[in-house]
């Protein structure tokens, strides 16, 4: 079997006496949609920060696309093809949706000490930006200011900006958070359309969405991965039922 795209190997992170990540291992295969679930405080946010490089680790290794990135800074990981969407929407509210995505494209096309040519007439920025907006279903909303988009649309834009950097791995940090049923359903449809074309690591609270979308699911409890498997296997897993799913259903 080919090497996984992302391999988290026996990761440990301690905050004083608290072990936030406890010998956690996780592998994301190319083209897979891998979901991470777990109750509050299971260490999901910590895991993202470790993968993205905002938080150092005490033990273990993170390998990405053949590189050991355990100690590489965030921009380097971004350049290697790791892109994330933010849990709290973080956009350029006073710029158009298209400008938002074009900036993300620009971020990954060399330095920006170019002072004269009109960036808004630059096909090498605008065309990919239009493409990505169309992919996430925001094509008709390209000229609307990001701050005036509906909440669900802002999440779509957030994902578009991550896609615009042509990532090898897309890290989605609770994309459904704070969404209504209808908006969630739209986002699930969007993620289904991205599945296979992108490798996705999805951290999510919404169980329905996770079980609909994921190829494999890893369950985190107290910083440990207690199970990894297909949605069916996870549903049937006794440990998971007891530690997590059971609690939710009560």
């Amino acid at each position: 079997m080919a090497e996984p795209l992302l391999a988290v190997e026996s990761l440990v992170k301690r905050f004083g006496g608290l072990v936030a990540t406890d010998h956690l291992s996780l592998a994301v295969e190319p083209a897979e949609l891998h979901a991470v679930i777990g109750p509050n405080g299971a260490g999901k946010t910590t895991l993202i920060a470790e993968i993205i490089g905002e938080l150092g680790v005490d033990e273990g290794r993170i390998r990405f696309d053949g590189h050991d990135i355990t100690h590489r800074p965030t921009p380097v990981r971004s350049a290697l093809g790791l892109a994330r969407s933010f849990q709290v929407t973080s956009l350029f509210p006073d710029m158009s949706a298209l400008d938002n995505v074009a900036l993300a494209v620009q971020a990954h096309s060399g330095h920006s000490f170019r002072f004269w040519r009109d960036a808004r007439a630059d096909a090498s920025l605008r065309d990919p930006a239009h493409d990505v907006l169309a992919q996430v279903g925001l094509g008709p909303r390209a000229d609307v200011l990001a701050g005036n988009l509906a909440h669900g649309e802002q999440r779509q834009l957030e994902i578009a900006m991550a896609l615009a950097t042509k990532p090898k791995l897309l890290l989605l940090d609770e994309p459904m958070a704070g969404m209504g049923t209808e908006e969630s359903a739209q986002l699930v449809t969007l993620l289904k359309s991205l599945k296979r074309r992108f490798t996705i690591l999805l951290i999510e609270h919404d169980m329905d969405a996770v079980f609909q979308l994921a190829d494999r699911i890893t369950v985190l409890v107290y910083g440990r991965a207690i199970a990894t498997g297909t949605p069916d296997a996870i549903r049937a897993n006794a440990d998971v039922r007891q530690a997590y799913l059971g609690e939710e259903e009560e």
Binding site: S90, L91, F92, P93, D94, M95, D99, A102, L103, Q106, S112, F113, R114, F115, W116, R117, D118, A119, R120, D122, L125
Partner: peptide, 14 residues
């Protein structure tokens, strides 16, 4: 309106 200008405006925004 250049690439540089877009970066500067992006910094103002977020």
């Amino acid at each position: 309106n250049s690439r540089f200008g877009m970066v500067i405006q992006g910094c103002r925004s977020n």
